[in-house]
């Protein structure tokens, strides 16, 4: 284990009951947000109004705008990081939260409005149907029904990662950069112990695979972002490609973090 952690004595039980207005205590929806004040309120209320019962936590990744207050006003619990950690660190905070509070499932929905919360149910159902499945990943490209438009450069990048992962894992991966995912308890334990840093989506697929956990892609619709900016600007995309490629390569050489499947007992 990379992180020695003694959180057994801790409990965030209160989060699962009185303050959260519509609590189910089973599914935690994590919304990582960095300067998303224009879209975060809509995203939070859409999640709270969607048909899947869940608790919503916004991880405010050191935003300098009104993201935190907007999210709080929209009814989410807000965890404010003291400074910007990047998407990986923010999502891992979500995993730590889900782990400490005994959530059975955790979902990630981006704060920019790209993901439609209505599709959460589809992802969640995929996990519930198959207890051996540890993660369901929403894919934009699994079917051609959903028209998703991205710039050529971005599509090319996604294709390249899809291609290399497909070959590294010997299975078809269509949308490795999608952040629209639902994990079960086993995956929560794994990623609470260690989650890739800067651009985690691609690398975490490899981590799951190497740790012997299973995942499946599920077709979901995605929109263009409603506001804010992608952390991957065109100037940074070269760095992104290189960094993720190095991470993938190093990941293949690394020993996986062991998670004991037997350890999990859902707190009901």
């Amino acid at each position: 284990m990379r992180y020695d952690d003694d959180r057994d004595g801790r409990s965030f039980d209160h989060v699962a009951d009185p303050t959260a207005r519509r609590s189910a205590g089973r599914l935690l929806v994590v919304v990582p947000a960095y300067n998303e004040e224009s879209s975060i309120a809509t995203v939070v209320s859409q999640i709270r109004e969607c048909s899947t019962p869940c608790d919503v936590v916004v991880i405010d990744d050191g935003s300098t705008d009104a993201t935190a207050s907007e999210a709080r006003a929209a009814g989410a619990l807000v965890v404010t990081l003291p400074f910007n950690l990047g998407i990986g660190g923010a999502v891992q905070t979500g995993f730590l939260f889900a782990q400490a509070n005994g959530y059975e499932y955790m979902a990630q929905v981006d704060g920019d409005g790209q993901h439609s919360p209505e599709a959460l149910e589809v992802l969640l159902r995929a996990l519930e149907r198959d207890p051996n499945l540890d993660m369901a990943c929403g894919s934009r490209f699994l079917t051609s029904d959903y028209a998703y438009r991205a710039s050529t450069a971005r599509r090319l990048g996604i294709r390249l990662f899809a291609f290399s992962l497909t070959h590294a894992l010997h299975r078809r991966i269509t949308d490795p950069t999608s952040g629209f995912r639902v994990w079960n308890r086993r995956a929560i334990e794994l990623f609470a112990a260690g989650y890739p840093h800067d651009y985690p989506e691609v690398e975490s697929l490899l981590m799951l695979h190497l740790s012997g956990l299973s995942f499946a892609e599920v077709a979901v619709p995605m929109h263009r972002r409603a506001g804010g900016r992608s952390s991957i600007t065109s100037a940074r995309s070269g760095y992104y490609m290189l960094k993720v490629s190095l991470a993938l390569f190093a990941g293949l050489l690394r020993r996986p973090i062991a998670v004991a499947p037997a350890r999990f007992e859902p707190k009901v």
């Binding site: 965030f12 989060v15 009185p18 303050t19 991880i59 404010t80 990081l81 003291p82 939260f97």
Partner: peptide
């Protein structure tokens, strides 16, 4: 530092929620 930031953020949230309660 990242781990500290995460812990602090979670503790602050816990504290704030307890005060609310």
């Amino acid at each position: 530092t990242r781990m500290l930031a995460q812990r602090v953020a979670l503790l602050e949230t816990e504290l704030a929620t307890q005060r609310l309660r």
